[in-house]
Design a protein around this nucleic acid. Structure first.
Lengths: 206, 206
DNA sequence: CTCTTTATTTATCGTATGATCATTATTTGC
DNA sequence: GCAAATAATGATCATACGATAAATAAAGAG
């Protein structure tokens, strides 16, 4: 097998493997799954940590869609429609066995990837969402009044509700119904309920 | 030190220890923290797994309040007030470093504890919540029409929003603001938004 | 066909883990 | 005080881990 081909095969299997067992998964067992010997892994990756690093990149950096904030901010469509569309797409990207479990393993191990990813999420998605919700409920934009903690916290509620579908399915191993109608329901009832938060945050001291 | 005293000390430290490192944490390191030798652990617990089992019981079984469903169902008070009170109390019980992290480690390792715990939660809390929300929005009780999947899914949204506060704080290591006002906001905006779900579920085929 | 290169394996090192056993230190009953 | 019981330790076993180095198999160039 050619080096680049072999490397691809190793990384792909490693993603699945570390998602299943966490980063403590043994290189011998990974090699067994690949039908290769364990030392061969060390020809392609200097250390186990180097392979783990590569797995991060493969799973997290590749699945971020840079146009998500544009989808949310496209005011030619109703906000509810945009938000449903975004979260359907976002769910497709992250509600997978590999993404959810690796993200959680990473957090538990104290790696800084979660923090960095969530900073990106907040900057590109949460801020846009707050801005659009402000407009929806007749409140001033975030350029005039920056997002308040409680508004960001409200957006976290929706985000958590959707992320947790993956936790229940891929971490707790519970049955979860079809995602599309569930996500639509979660987004719509969120928007229905969040109005008072936005209005409070933009009228009282904040 | 007396046996029961020593055992308590070991279990208490083991809770913290396994919450930090997961169940792969080494017995030698645990012993070092306890200022005892590693073989002494094996005088009190036959195997490492036996100690892990004990840690589960200590953290999960001891913190469940059997009166929670009564708090939620006490119709002498407004529903919003009851739900806020319940989730403030529930948050105090589970939004701790040990509870959140051990629960997640347990799920990732494929132990069945999560499933069993969440069955208890669904039976005692979610069903009661759906029943009370039905009453709030003028829909028939669950005795007449059992909770639908989409209603339970709606309740999961609120539950996830609150649980995820602990994930952000204790797993992602992110700063999270004061819990009381945040939880109040999450409960109130949830109730504001969930009406349409309950009405849909009880009027259309369901 | 041969030589060079390199993908892959076999054998192994140093270390660390869960667990055991014999021994020592400490407490308890009388 | 003294002896029995037991809490606690020191030394160690069997195994398994990540990693390394030498040997082998396979492929490609000329």
């Amino acid at each position: 097998m050619s080096p680049s081909e072999r490397e691809d095969v190793i990384v792909k299997e490693a993603v699945r493997f570390f998602a299943e067992f966490g980063f403590e998964g043994h290189t011998r067992e990974l090699a067994r799954r690949l039908d290769i010997t364990q030392p061969l892994l060390y020809r392609y990756f200097a250390t186990k940590d180097a392979l783990v690093e590569r797995v991060y990149q493969e799973v997290f950096l590749r699945r971020w869609n840079p146009f998500w904030d544009e989808v949310i901010g496209d005011r030619s469509k109703p906000l509810r429609e945009r938000m449903v569309a975004f979260y359907q797409d976002y769910a497709k990207a992250i509600l997978t066995y590999e993404w959810i479990r690796l993200f959680m393993f990473s957090g538990l191990k104290g790696l800084d990837f979660n923090t960095r990813y969530l900073e990106l999420l907040r900057r590109r998605v949460f801020n846009t969402l707050v801005d659009e919700l402000r407009l929806e409920f007749g409140a001033p934009g975030t350029a005039e009044k920056p997002p308040t903690d409680i508004e960001v916290e409200a957006v976290w509620s929706l985000h958590a509700a959707i992320f947790y579908l993956g936790v229940r399915k891929f971490i707790y191993n519970m049955p979860v119904g079809p995602l599309e109608p569930i996500i639509e329901m979660k987004v719509l009832s969120f928007v229905d309920g969040v109005g008072v938060v936005v209005r409070d945050a933009t009228t009282t001291a904040g």
